[in-house]
């Protein structure tokens, strides 16, 4: 059977409490998942109390403040701090999102920051996403052509054809969607997951791509594609407002039409 529970050694225990600074005007509790692979202990949930009057507005600002001023060992990925690199994807108050585009005051009370769900944790909020990237590679996310390009110009695309890619090509591969999907949790070894399938559909829909039939062949599989049961956690989670569930439904519809 699939493991619904966390293995014993993966269950977090209550960790340290880092108190608020003296005379904090607007104290706010942040509970942060910690895991140190070099010590033998289980993961911990450490509490950090910050003064919001002395902190940037986003959850990522709070994490940076903790790292700079309270505990330099806190590890997490971040880069652009404006929602385009996808590095700071994590689970905040039970939902996957980007820490850099989430306002602290959008959450009412204590803010719980955990790594992306059902991934091997490397350290603290950093998870191993190599499988996620391999699945992206499986859908061969590049333009494939049979006919040679025109000698005197690039391959053109009509505006209407280009418009079909809107909502598909903006994906930043943050993994919020795939790691929010229960089907991906239980079948991550064989189900490609919403992000890779969104990418697959992006190339299927591209008027210039000439490998549509092969792309569909490769997805006609009980696990790769059809573990998707339209639960729609992916769409709810996407910090870019994309709709992987709709894209996957598009792939299924094309396969069905081809069969009929």
């Amino acid at each position: 059977m699939v493991q619904f529970r966390l293995p014993r050694e993966a269950r977090p225990v209550t960790g340290r409490e880092h108190a608020a600074p003296e005379r904090a005007a607007r104290p706010r509790r942040f509970v942060v998942y910690r895991f140190d692979p070099d010590t033998g202990g289980p993961p911990r949930l450490d509490t950090f109390v910050l003064d919001l009057d002395d902190c940037g507005p986003m959850v990522l600002d709070a994490l940076l403040k903790i790292k700079n001023e309270m505990d330099a060992t806190l590890s997490f990925r971040r880069s652009c701090r404006e929602g385009i690199c996808g590095s700071c994807a994590m689970n905040i108050n039970g939902r996957n999102t980007l820490a850099c585009t989430r306002r602290i005051d959008a959450y009412p009370g204590e803010i719980r920051v955990l790594p992306l769900p059902h991934r091997p944790v490397i350290r603290d909020l950093i998870t191993d996403l190599s499988q996620f990237y391999r699945q992206y590679a499986v859908v061969e996310p590049w333009l494939q052509e049979r006919t040679p390009p025109p000698p005197d110009r690039e391959r053109l695309q009509r505006p209407a054809d280009r418009a079909r890619l809107v909502g598909l090509e903006e994906c930043i591969l943050c993994a919020c969607c795939s790691t929010s999907c229960p089907s991906y949790w239980w079948n991550e070894a064989r189900f490609l997951g919403p992000a890779a399938l969104l990418a697959a559909y992006r190339w299927i829909e591209d008027s210039r791509d000439e490998a549509t039939a092969q792309r569909l062949d490769a997805l006609d599989d009980a696990y790769r594609l059809y573990r998707c049961h339209t639960i729609m956690n992916c769409t709810e989670a996407c910090p870019k407002g994309l709709d992987p569930a709709r894209a996957i439904a598009g792939v299924k519809r094309l396969l069905a039409l081809r069969k009929l």
């Binding site: 955990l114 790594p115 091997p120 998870t127």
Partner: peptide, 17 residues
């Protein structure tokens, strides 16, 4: 050493789910 991150235990499932 790695551990599995919490999933069903912590995810706030949307109504759809």
């Amino acid at each position: 050493r790695r551990v599995l991150s919490p999933h069903l235990q912590v995810y706030r499932l949307p109504l759809n789910a």
